[in-house]
Every structure is written in C-alpha cells, then in structure tokens.
Lab assay of single mutants.
Amino acid sequence: MGFKLLSKLLVYLTASIMAIASPLAFSVDSSGEYPTVSEIPVGEVRLYQIADGVWSHIATQSFDGAVYPSNGLIVRDGDELLLIDTAWGAKNTAALLAEIEKQIGLPVTRAVSTHFHDDRVGGVDVLRAAGVATYASPSTRRLAEVEGNEIPTHSLEGLSSSGDAVRFGPVELFYPGAAHSTDNLIVYVPSASVLYGGCAIYELSRTSAGNVADADLAEWPTSIERIQQHYPEAQFVIPGHGLPGGLDLLKHTTNVVKAHTNRSVVE
C-alpha cells in the first residue's frame, strides 16, 4: 500500500471513529477524501466538511520552486461564519470567499490569524475590503508590521502568557507558548472536538522541520505538551499544512522538532 493511500485511509478511519463516538456532533463529509496538494491548482481553494458547521479550507501556493498546501478553518456561528487564517495570499483568499459563498452561503463576518507569517495573514486586506472584521493577538499584529505583512485590524486580548485561553464565538483560542513562531495560536472547536494546530503542528508525513527561522526550538516541545494537557479530548487535529489526523500529530511534531534540534547540535 502506497504512503499517500495509507495517509488518506488514516484520515478516513479517524473521521469514521469520530462519527461513531459522537453521532450528534459529527456529520463528516462523505463526498470524498481530504484534498491534497496535487489536486488543488494554485489560485483555487477546496472546502472539506469535518463536522456539522465545521470545515477546513485548503489552498496551495508556490514557494521556492515548489507547491505547498495550506489549511485553515471555518466555523459556523449562528447565521454567520468565523474564518481562521487566510488562504495564503490575496488571490487565494478572494477564491476562498467565493467558494464559501458557493458552498455554504453564509457571510464571513470575523477572521482570526493564528500567527504573523504570510500563509496566515496574506489576504487580510481582501477580507477587510469584503467587510470582514480581522483579528490577531497584539504580538501577531506587531510582528506582521515588522515583517511588512498585512496586519489584522483588531487585537485579541488575554493571550499574552503561555497557557492563556479565551473564548471567541464558537471557538476557544489558546496560546501554548512559542513553537513554530513566538505568537502562534491554537484554535479548538469544543462542539466538535476539532483542534486546529496551525503551523505549530505537523502532518504525519512530514519528517523535516522546514521553516524554523522564527521558531523557538527549545520551547516548542513544552508548548505541545500544554496543548495535549489542555485538549486531551480532541479527536480531529488539523495541521497548518497537509493531512489531518488525531492527537498523534502532536507527538510526531515533537519528535521531528527534537530530531532537528539534535542534528543542529551535532553539526
């Protein structure tokens, strides 16, 4: 069995187990497998329904001669939608809004960016022009300005110390501490036991640490421990890039980060 097929099978099995364990909360999309990078042309966006009122959005972007996937989250909030992270750029984010209108038909009224990198804030200006209120932590807003990236308009308070959590509509926002970046936030959907790890969490097929220019490698494993301790009931975990899975993604990420750190020390 090929690795790609095995990865998709694991996603399907995880979703099936969740649907059985929580039949009222989960209505997993039966329309197909989780979209992969090879299936999404740059400039297009796919939506994948995880649970009743919960979707991931998947886009792709060219970077350094390669094409990478990027995940975000959409959560229903009454007759409105909360968006977590842009679709990595203005063109993708405009396509995301169009796809949401086509498939869901509810307005996106608020959006949260989970850290300051372009795959999370690139497209904020498109959201703002569409009347979406954009939010991020003060740290993310400051770092985005320093980096020359787009800056969300509103500040999220109460997320300055490791372990801080605040309720934001249908989700809980959690600051686990520094990891992929010093400002990275985690998003949890309690009604569906869905954990969105953003770039602080890796997919299972990833074996290298990737972009760690703004990471705190020493603190990252401790931050992941905080996530595990705060959300032990999480059933569906979405990484910032690639295929979702279960809580095993947290341990896998820790292993990859520690291996990278150990290699760096040896070198």
Rank of each mutant, 00 (worst) to 15 (best):
G198P: 00
I151V: 14
V171M: 05
D119A: 03
Q49K: 14
A130C: 11
S62N: 10
G105R: 14
E99D: 14
S208N: 15
L13F: 08
R263P: 13
M1T: 04
T93V: 01
G123Y: 03
A15Y: 14
R206G: 09
R120L: 01
E157I: 14
G245I: 01
E39C: 08
K102V: 12
S16M: 05
L159P: 06
P23G: 09
S30M: 14
S264K: 08
A129P: 02
G245H: 04
V237L: 06
P244M: 10
I104C: 00
E225P: 02
V54M: 11
N184C: 01
R120D: 04
S139C: 09
D125P: 04
A111E: 15
L173T: 02
S191N: 08
T207P: 11
R110W: 10
L81V: 11
A178N: 15
K8T: 11
V28Q: 09
A66K: 10
S139I: 14
F26R: 07
L13I: 14
I238R: 01
A25C: 11
A178M: 10
I186W: 01
A259R: 08
S162V: 11
C199W: 02
E267P: 15
S191H: 14
I201M: 14
V11T: 06
A59K: 04
K91E: 14
G197C: 06
L9Q: 08
E233C: 05
F26A: 07
I84L: 13
A218R: 14
R46N: 12
D118H: 07
S181M: 01
V45N: 06
W88T: 00
D77P: 02
M1V: 05
S161N: 05
S181D: 00
A98V: 07
S181R: 01
V126Y: 13
H252K: 04
V265W: 09
D248G: 10
R167W: 06
P176Y: 00
D183M: 00
S160G: 13
Y48D: 11
Q235L: 09
D52M: 14
I50N: 04
V257T: 06
L185H: 00
G242I: 03
V146C: 14
D64R: 10
L250G: 01
H154E: 10
R128S: 12
V126H: 06
A218P: 11
A218M: 05
G197R: 01
F63M: 07
E233M: 08
A111K: 04
G122M: 15
S181P: 02
V237M: 03
S160K: 14
P41A: 10
Y12P: 04
V212G: 12
T207M: 07
G72A: 00
V256R: 05
E219Q: 10
V194R: 01
S162L: 12
Q228T: 06
S70F: 02
V75D: 03
V37D: 11
L156Q: 03
L96E: 01
T207E: 13
V266S: 14
R76N: 11
R142T: 14
I100C: 03
E99F: 15
A129F: 05
L204C: 04
T36E: 11
L97E: 02
G105E: 14
N184G: 05
L250I: 07
N255M: 07
T261M: 06
E157R: 14
P23T: 08
V257H: 04
P152S: 10
V37P: 07
L249F: 03
V75F: 02
Y202F: 06
S160C: 13
G65F: 07
T36I: 08
D183Y: 03
V126Q: 13
L195P: 03
A98P: 07
V112F: 08
E225A: 14
V187A: 08
L159Q: 00
E172L: 05
A94E: 12
R110I: 05
I20P: 12
G197F: 02
S31M: 06
P190R: 05
P138H: 07
E172F: 05
V126P: 04
R167K: 06
Y196E: 00
D77L: 04
L81R: 02
H260C: 08
S160M: 11
R128E: 10
T207C: 05
H57N: 03
F3Y: 05
M18S: 06
H180Y: 04
E145G: 12
A90K: 09
E147F: 13
D79W: 15
V266G: 12
L81S: 04
Y231F: 15
A59I: 14
P138Q: 10
G246T: 08
G32W: 09
P232N: 07
G197D: 02
I224F: 03
L217I: 15
S70H: 07
Y12K: 15
D164P: 06
F174N: 02
G240I: 04
L97P: 02
T93M: 04
S7T: 12
D85F: 00
G72P: 02
V194P: 00
T153D: 07
V146D: 12
L143A: 09
R141K: 14
G89P: 04
L82R: 02
N184H: 02
S160E: 13
A200G: 04
A111V: 07
E80F: 15
G89I: 01
T36S: 06
G131M: 11
A66F: 12
H57R: 02
A200N: 00
D248Q: 15
Y48R: 08
H260F: 06
Q61K: 14
G197W: 01
V132A: 09
I58Y: 10
D29Q: 13
G177F: 00
Y188Q: 01
D216S: 13
Y231S: 02
E203A: 10
Q61G: 13
N71V: 03
G210R: 11
S208H: 15
V11E: 05
V266T: 15
G148M: 10
R110K: 08
F236V: 06
I238L: 07
S139L: 12
V256N: 05
E157Q: 12
S181H: 00
V67N: 10
G72D: 03
A87T: 02
H117V: 00
H180K: 00
P190A: 05
N92C: 04
V108L: 12
L250C: 04
R206I: 11
T182R: 08
V146Q: 10
E145A: 15
R206Q: 11
F26S: 12
E219D: 10
N71P: 00
Q228L: 15
E33D: 08
L204M: 14
T36M: 08
N92E: 07
E33F: 13
L204F: 05
F174Q: 02
Q61T: 08
H260L: 06
N184I: 03
G105I: 06
F116Q: 03
G210S: 14
Q235E: 06
E44W: 09
I50F: 05
V28F: 15
T182P: 11
Q235T: 13
L249R: 00
P41F: 11
N211P: 07
Y34T: 14
V121L: 06
V132Q: 00
G163S: 08
H180G: 00
S27R: 11
Y68C: 08
H241A: 00
L73P: 04
L9H: 06
L9P: 07
S208V: 09
G65H: 06
T253R: 00
N184L: 01
S31A: 12
L249V: 05
F63P: 07
L6P: 10
F116S: 14
V187R: 01
T134E: 01
F168P: 04
R167H: 05
V112S: 03
G65K: 12
V166A: 07
V108W: 03
T36G: 08
A21L: 11
E44Q: 12
G32H: 15
S208F: 12
L13P: 08
A95T: 09
E99M: 14
D216C: 05
A87E: 01
D216H: 07
A15K: 15
L106M: 10
A15T: 06
